[in-house]
Structure formats: C-alpha cells, structure tokens
C-alpha cells in the first residue's frame, strides 16, 4: 500500500522531472512481456501502432499448386485436424469421427465422396482467401499454421472421409 504523506513535501519539486520521465517512458516503452511460458505472436500483425507487430504486414493471399503426389497420411491428418494447437478444423467443421464439432463451416464428414481433387483441396486448405476473400477460414499454409506435410496429411484425411 502507498505512503502518500511521505512524499507530499517533495511533490512540487519532483513533478516536472517525473512528468518528463513518464513522457519518455511513453515514447519508447517496452511492449507487454509474453506471459511466463506463454506464446509469443510478435511476428504476426497486431492491433494498434505502439508495438513493432503493428507494422508487420498481413501475408497476401496465395494460390498454391500441389507439387507431385499427395503422400498424405489420413490417420495423422485426423489428429492434426482435431488438435486445437494445430488445424483445429473441428472448431468450425463437422468432421468424420470428430467429437464436439463447430457449425460455421460446411460439413466435411463426407468430403471424400465429393469430386474435389487433391490439388484443389490442398489449395483451399493452404489459403481459402484465393477462392473467397471474405472467408473467416485461416490461411493454414500461407500463415505457416501447418507445415507442408501436415497440410498433405489433412488433405488425405478429408479425401478419406466418406
């Protein structure tokens, strides 16, 4: 708790100096420290202009072509699609054998029964913005949310969902 009276006498003398110090602090003050062991997202665009991430550009939409054969593993793909710290596709989509799905995106539980090719599916998961600029789906490839192999595994899982 404070002891305001102890400082009252010197307040008048100190005020201008401390105000200057406070102003100096505003000009180049350090940003928030990431919580102990917490994630650090400083490399991605943030709100406002007081932190360096305010000047980080959003990555522009990419139309990505699948190189070679898919070589994805459906079982691994399912784990990635369900994991909250990976694809977390379940947050918005109904998926084959997935518990507690979201409801915003299309139902993908029989995706593989459709006619979309591996290449098209890969491109959409990589960056849906190339198809729909207003999508709320994160650009999993462009923003490195998933690795190249993880993308291929998720596509294999979707294609195996029938």
């Amino acid at each position: 708790m404070s002891q305001p009276n102890a400082f009252s006498a010197s307040r008048r003398t100190l005020a201008p100096l401390l105000m200057a110090l406070a102003l100096a602090g505003c000009a180049g003050g350090p940003g928030p420290k990431p919580g102990a062991g917490g994630p650090n997202y400083a490399a991605w665009p943030c709100l406002g202009t007081s932190l360096p991430c305010g000047a980080v550009a959003t990555r522009t939409p990419q139309q990505k072509t699948l190189d070679g054969a898919l070589n994805g593993d459906p079982a691994r793909g399912q784990k990635i699609a369900e994991a909250r710290n990976k694809g977390n596709c379940l947050a918005c989509h109904v998926l084959k054998d997935g518990a507690q799905p979201g409801s915003r995106g299309p139902d993908l539980s029989r995706y593989g029964a459709g006619k979309r090719s591996d290449a098209e599916t890969y491109a959409l998961v990589h960056d849906m913005r190339a198809r729909n600029p207003d999508t709320v789906m994160p650009p999993f490839g462009t923003n490195a949310i998933l690795t190249e192999q993880e993308l291929r595994d998720v596509v294999a899982y979707l294609q195996a969902s029938k």
Binding site: Y41, W44, Q100, P138, A144
Partner: peptide
C-alpha cells in the same frame, strides 16, 4: 480496429462477433 484482421489466424474481432460470421454458431464448445 474491430474489423481489422490480425494474428497468425488472420481473424478480426468481427470474424466471431458480427452477423454472417461465427457469431451464433458453435465454435467447438
């Protein structure tokens, strides 16, 4: 700012809290 997309997931506040967005839909639990 409410409509500005930020972060690795490229979301805005509005991505979850406007009509036609995820608002009113299940986002997992």
């Amino acid at each position: 700012l409410f409509y500005t997309k930020v972060g690795q997931l490229n979301f805005a506040c509005a991505s979850c809290h406007t009509p036609g967005s995820i608002m009113g839909h299940k986002l997992r639990g």
